[in-house]
Simulated scan of single mutants.
Amino acid sequence: MKKALVFGSTGNFGSSTVKALLESGWRVSVFKRTQSKLNVNDSRIEVIEGDINHTKDISVACEGVDLIVYGINPPYTQWRSNAYQLLDRIVSVVEQKKLHILFPGNVYCLPTSNVAIDEATPLSSQTEKGDIRLAMEQRLKKAATKGARVTIIRAGDFIGGQDQWFNMTFKPTKRGWKMASPHDPQHQHFWSYLPDLCANAISAAEQQHTSFEVFHDVGVVATIDDWKKAFKANDIELTAGRFPWWAITCTSLVVPLFKEVLEMRYLWRSTLVLDGTKLKTTLAHNYLSTSLHKIVGDTLSHQQKPVNSLNVINH
């Protein structure tokens, strides 16, 4: 049985990938800080304690591993100081041990476009965070020339993960649900449903024999009307209002996180959709794709109480 080691197992991509690995029959280890509050109730998961800042701890954890899953994503306010550095430390070990690493890419290092973007599109950053993500992808590509095997799967904003501020987008009302839309009615926004994304990512990594591959998630492209139709298909009325960008703008003067969020607002104003033909073709009948109305239904059905927020989160 193949073994995977997951860094960032409590995050959105990491935790969903742990589930996908277990469902695919993998042995799974998760790396955690000593004295951390990570609670693992599944006997199939091995917990390895260590310090992510110590290369020796990382190296020991990687012994006997077939796949490294990189699920680490520091808060926006820590990207300048930590994002690239954390990746570089782990990738250095991956190079040395000639391991396979799975990395969740995003759209920050891609140009906006009125047509779907495929994997051959040249990278193009529009923000400082885009510069960081571009550098991270370049580091991974370099690793592939030094003995590592690299799988990058680029995705949009996540649906179906853990609670984050973006849960404010959907709220229950007495008559149904209300959407505080971050974009105008015409905008087509790109989302990635975590259960599908992570299962497809594992399948792609399992089939890969080359040293470096990039895949784009097909995801879900939705307008406000598409969300309304998806809720209606579940017999729920959805009304739409405006997301309070004005409040984010005002408080960004004193809240550093909101300043970082505003830098990415262009993604709610311009079109950036990925072409996932390569991934669909590679996986063929193993490719998973859940419709938006089923995503809504499944998400709401898993809520413990009907008044909880729909789990829609920002990548």
Rank of each mutant, 00 (worst) to 15 (best):
F190E: 05
G176K: 10
Y108C: 00
L21T: 04
Y70K: 12
V221P: 08
C109N: 14
K174S: 13
V220P: 01
A116R: 15
V312T: 13
I45W: 03
G161P: 00
D298S: 08
P74F: 00
Q188A: 10
R33K: 13
Q96D: 14
C198M: 12
I236C: 09
V115G: 06
F103R: 05
V18H: 05
V94H: 07
R242D: 12
W165I: 13
V273Q: 13
P122I: 10
N311Y: 13
E95T: 07
E237V: 11
V115I: 15
L123M: 15
W79T: 05
F190C: 03
Q35Y: 15
D163C: 10
F231I: 00
L292Q: 08
D131R: 01
V30K: 05
S181K: 03
A284C: 11
R133I: 01
T281M: 12
Q207N: 15
A4G: 10
I236S: 03
Q78N: 14
L279P: 00
V91P: 00
A233P: 00
D88M: 13
W177C: 08
K56E: 15
N12S: 11
I248R: 07
D235L: 09
P104K: 10
S9M: 03
A204Y: 07
K259R: 12
S36L: 03
V6T: 03
V28D: 00
V273M: 12
N53H: 14
D298A: 09
Y84N: 08
T151N: 03
I68Y: 02
H285M: 09
N167F: 15
V255F: 05
F243L: 01
T290D: 03
T55Q: 10
S252N: 05
K141C: 05
V312L: 14
V107R: 01
I72D: 01
K232G: 04
R139A: 14
N53I: 08
F212G: 02
P185E: 15
E49P: 01
P182N: 04
T277S: 14
H189W: 08
S203C: 14
S113A: 11
L279W: 04
Q188E: 12
P111F: 09
F166E: 02
L140P: 04
V28M: 07
R44L: 12
I224T: 08
H54C: 05
R139F: 09
Q78R: 09
S24K: 14
S203R: 15
S211V: 13
Y76N: 00
W227R: 03
R89D: 07
Y266R: 01
M136C: 04
G147Y: 10
V94S: 01
N311D: 12
T173A: 07
V214D: 04
T281Y: 13
